[in-house]
Design a binder for these strands. Structure first.
Length: 605
RNA sequence: GCGGGUGUAGCUCAGUUGGUUAGAGCGCCUGCCUGUCACGCAGGAGGCCGAGGGUUCAAGUCCCUUCACUCGCGCCA
C-alpha cells in the first residue's frame, strides 16, 4: 500500500464498498458522540467521512486529534445505510471505517487564528498573515484553482492561434509606462540601478524586430504605485501579446476568440451561466464613447445613451438662462433619455437631482414627455418646437423623460456618464448575468497634461499616430488619433494595446511634439531606436489584465481574492515579512547608504 | 501625502443618555452522549476594550494625540 494514500478524498463511491483504502488529508471537522466519532477528512479534492467507535483500541488516540492535523487513515469503505447517506456530499454514500491512522503533520497545539471549516468573513490582516490557512478555505481555494485554469486556458488558446510564449528579463531598464519604477541596485556598477519591468513592452517589440512573429507571455508587471480594491500593490499579471505585419483588425481577430473562448469556458463558475459577447466585439471610437457613454470604458449592460442637444438649448426660442450662460462660454448640453418613467414618483426625480448636487453639479434638469406635453421644472423654458427637436434627437417616445447636463465639454461628458449609470441603477435596468465586451478605438495621440498644461502623450508613446509623419507635421496634435485601443468589459478596462510606431523619424517627431528632444529619446530608448533603424517590421499587440479577468469570473470585488499571496494595501507581505531591513553588509555590497526620514529611523529602531 | 470607516476574548461581533462584576456565537478545556454530517447537552478557562494623554466622583462609551487595518482620492498601460 502507498505510504500516504490510495485514493483522494473525493474518489470513493458505493461501488467501492468492501475495499480497504488509505486516504490522507486535514481533519476538517469532528463529531464526537462519545461512543462513536466521525471525522471529515479534507484534501484538495474533497471530503470523506471517517468513522470509528469504542470497539476500536485506537479510539482514544483518534479522539485527541485536533482540527487541521494532517493524517492518513487506512480502513474499509462501507456503504452507509439509506437513512445515513448524505446527498450533499459526493462521497456521501460511503464512509471509511478506521483501522489504522498516521499523524503526518506535527500535532497542532496552538489555537487556530482562523477556522478553515468556516465561511466567516475574517479580517484581511489575519487572512494575509496566515494565508496558508485562508487558502485551505473553500472560496479562496476555488478562486485560485480558477486562476490556474484561466491561465492554462489562455496559454492553450494562444498556442492554438499560433503564438509562442517567451520569457523576458525581470532585471531591466526603466520602461515608458510612466508609473514609478521599482529599483534594484547594481553591485557591479556602483550608483546604478536596474528597474523591474512595468510591462515587457520594449522586449516584446524587440522580439518582433528580431524576426519572431507571434509573441505572448503571462507576464509579471511591476509598478510602485498605491493599491486599490481592484489593483494590487506593486505587481500584477498580464496576458501580453505582440504580432508582426498586422493591422488593428488583425489583433482584434486574433484576440477575440481567445478572450471569448476563455470567458465562455468559465462563465458558469459561480453556478449561474453568464452570456458572453460573441466575436466580433463592437468597436467604438473614443470620441463616440465619450459622447454616448461619458467615458472611455462604457458599461454596455446599461441600455441608456447620451445625446448632444446643445443646438436645442442654443435656439433663440429656448430661454433657459442657466444653460444659456454656460453655452455662451462654449459649453455643451448632454441629454439622457430614460424610457417610460412618466409614472415614477416625484421622489425618483428629486433623488437624482440631489445626487447630482452631491456630485458637484448644480442639479439634474429633466423634462418628462407626457401625452399632453413636456412636464418638469425645465419644460416651461422649452417651447413646443424645441421640445419636438429634443424628441427627435433623443428618440423620445411618449412617457419617457430626458435628463440634462450642461457644462464645458469634458466635464459635461463625465457628469453625463455618471448620471447615465446612476439613472440606470435607480431604474434597475442594467442587464445581469452577462459579459459585454467592446473595443474602444482611435484614442487621441496627445492630450493637455492637467499637471503641466503642456501637450503630452495621452496613452502609450510607442503607438503609431494615424496619418503617420504627415499628420504629426501638419495637424493640430490634439486632433491626431493613434492606433491605440482598449478592450472593455462591463465598464472595466481589461486590456490596452496599439499598433506600434516602427519608424525612427516618426518616433523622434512624436516624442518631439510631447517635448522630448531627439537626444533624450535616443538615450532613454536606445535599443529600440537602433532596432528601428535596422529593419523593423510593422507590428502591434495588446495586454489583458489577468487578475481583473479572474475577478470578473469569480465575481470578486477585491483583487486579493484571486491572488494566492497578495500584499496588503501598504504593500507589505504579512506572511513573508516583506519588505524588511537589509543587513549593513548587504547594503555596503550594493553601495547604498540609508538616508531615512526621522519617523522611519524610529520605527527601524 | 490626504479624506472616510473600523479597532472589545484565538476568530466574528454586540455593548443604551458615561454608572455595579464587559457579553454572545464559533473555537479551546472538562464531563455526558453509538448515526452525526454546522451533531447535541452540561460546565469551565480565556479581556491592557489598539496605544498614550485628558475631561469626570465615574470612561469600552466623551475630547486630543498616535498606531494598525481597510475603502477612496492623489498616483497608476
Amino acid at each position: 500500500m502507498h505510504a500516504y494514500r490510495t485514493h483522494k478524498c473525493n474518489d470513493l463511491r458505493a461501488s467501492d464498498a468492501g475495499q480497504t483504502v488509505k486516504i490522507a488529508g486535514w481533519i476538517h471537522r469532528k463529531r464526537d458522540h462519545g461512543g462513536l466519532l466521525f471525522i471529515d477528512l479534507r484534501d484538495h479534492y474533497g471530503l470523506t467521512q471517517v468513522v470509528i467507535n469504542t470497539d476500536n483500541p485506537l479510539f482514544e488516540a483518534v479522539e485527541k486529534l485536533k482540527l487541521e492535523n494532517v493524517i492518513s487513515v487506512t480502513g474499509e469503505v462501507v456503504e452507509r445505510t439509506a437513512e445515513t447517506k448524505n446527498s450533499k456530499l459526493p462521497t456521501g454514500e460511503i464512509e471509511v471505517k478506521l483501522k489504522a491512522f498516521d499523524l503526518l503533520s506535527a500535532p497542532v497545539t496552538d489555537m487556530l487564528p482562523l477556522q478553515v471549516n468556516s465561511d466567516e468573513p475574517y479580517g484581511e490582516d489575519v487572512r494575509l498573515k496566515y494565508r496558508f490557512l485562508d487558502l485551505r478555505r473553500e472560496v479562496l481555494h476555488r478562486n485560485i484553482v480558477l486562476r490556474c485554469d484561466v491561465v492554462s486556458s489562455l496559454r492553450r488558446r494562444m498556442n492554438e492561434q499560433g503564438f509562442r510564449e517567451f520569457q523576458t528579463p525581470i532585471l531591466t531598464a526603466s520602461s515608458p509606462e510612466g508609473a514609478r519604477d521599482f529599483l534594484v541596485p547594481s553591485r557591479l556598477h556602483p550608483g546604478t540601478f536596474y528597474a523591474l519591468p512595468q510591462a515587457p513592452q520594449q522586449f516584446k517589440q524587440l522580439l518582433m524586430m528580431s524576426g519572431f512573429d507571434r509573441y505572448f507571455q503571462i507576464a509579471p508587471c511591476f509598478r510602485d504605485e498605491d493599491a486599490r480594491a481592484d489593483r494590487t500593490a506593486g505587481e500584477f499579471y498580464q496576458l501580453d501579446v505582440e504580432m508582426s505585419f498586422v493591422t488593428q483588425d488583425d489583433v482584434f481577430a486574433a484576440m477575440e476568440p481567445v478572450i471569448y473562448g476563455m470567458f465562455e469556458e468559465f462563465s458558469a463558475f459561480n453556478g449561474k451561466k453568464f452570456s458572453v459577447t460573441p466575436p466580433p466585439f463592437v468597436r467604438i471610437p473614443y470620441d463616440e464613447s465619450m459622447l454616448k457613454y461619458g467615458n472611455d470604458k462604457p458599461d454596455l449592460r446599461n441600455p441608456l445613451v447620451i445625446t448632444d442637444v446643445t443646438e436645442v438649448f442654443a435656439r433663440d426660442d429656448v430661454q433657459f438662462k442657466a444653460f444659456k450662460g454656460v453655452l455662451e462660454k462654449g459649453g455643451v448640453v448632454r441629454a439622457i433619455r430614460a424610457p417610460a418613467v412618466f409614472d415614477k414618483p416625484r421622489s425618483f426625480f428629486d433623488k437624482l437631482n440631489s445626487w447630482a448636487q452631491g456630485e458637484g453639479a448644480p442639479g439634474l434638469g429633466y423634462i418628462v414627455f407626457e401625452s399632453e406635453g413636456g412636464k418638469g421644472p425645465i419644460a416651461k423654458f422649452v417651447p413646443d418646437a424645441a421640445q419636438a427637436e429634443l424628441r427627435r434627437l433623443c428618440g423620445v417616445e411618449t412617457g419617457d423623460a430626458v435628463f440634462f447636463v450642461c457644462d464645458m465639454a469634458d466635464k459635461a461628458a463625465k457628469m453625463a456618464g455618471l448620471a447615465r449609470t446612476k439613472i440606470a441603477e435607480d431604474m434597475d435596468i442594467i442587464e445581469k448575468d452577462t459579459f459585454k465586451f467592446c473595443w474602444i478605438v482611435d484614442f487621441p495621440m496627445y492630450e493637455i497634461s492637467e499637471r503641466t498644461g503642456k501637450v503630452d502623450f495621452s496613452h502609450n508613446p510607442f503607438s503609431m499616430p494615424q496619418g503617420g509623419l504627415k499628420a504629426l507635421n501638419g495637424d493640430d496634435p490634439l486632433k491626431i488619433k493613434a492606433f491605440q485601443y482598449d478592450c472593455v468589459l462591463n465598464g472595466v478596462e481589461l486590456a490596452s494595446g496599439g499598433i506600434r510606431n516602427h519608424v525612427p523619424e516618426i518616433m523622434e517627431r512624436a516624442f518631439g511634439i510631447a517635448g522630448y528632444p531627439a537626444e533624450a529619446v535616443r538615450a532613454k530608448f536606445g535599443g529600440m531606436y537602433s532596432a528601428f533603424k535596422f529593419g523593423a517590421p510593422p507590428h502591434g499587440g495588446c495586454a489583458f489584465g489577468i487578475d481583473r479577468m479572474v475577478m470578473f469570473l469569480a465575481d470578486q470585488k477585491n483583487v486579493r481574492e484571486v491572488i494566492a499571496f497578495p500584499m496588503n494595501q501598504q504593500a507589505e507581505d504579512l506572511l513573508m515579512g516583506a519588505p524588511s531591513p537589509a543587513e549593513p553588509a548587504q547594503l555596503k555590497e550594493v553601495h547604498i547608504k540609508l538616508d531615512l526620514p526621522k519617523a522611519a529611523v524610529k520605527a527601524a529602531g
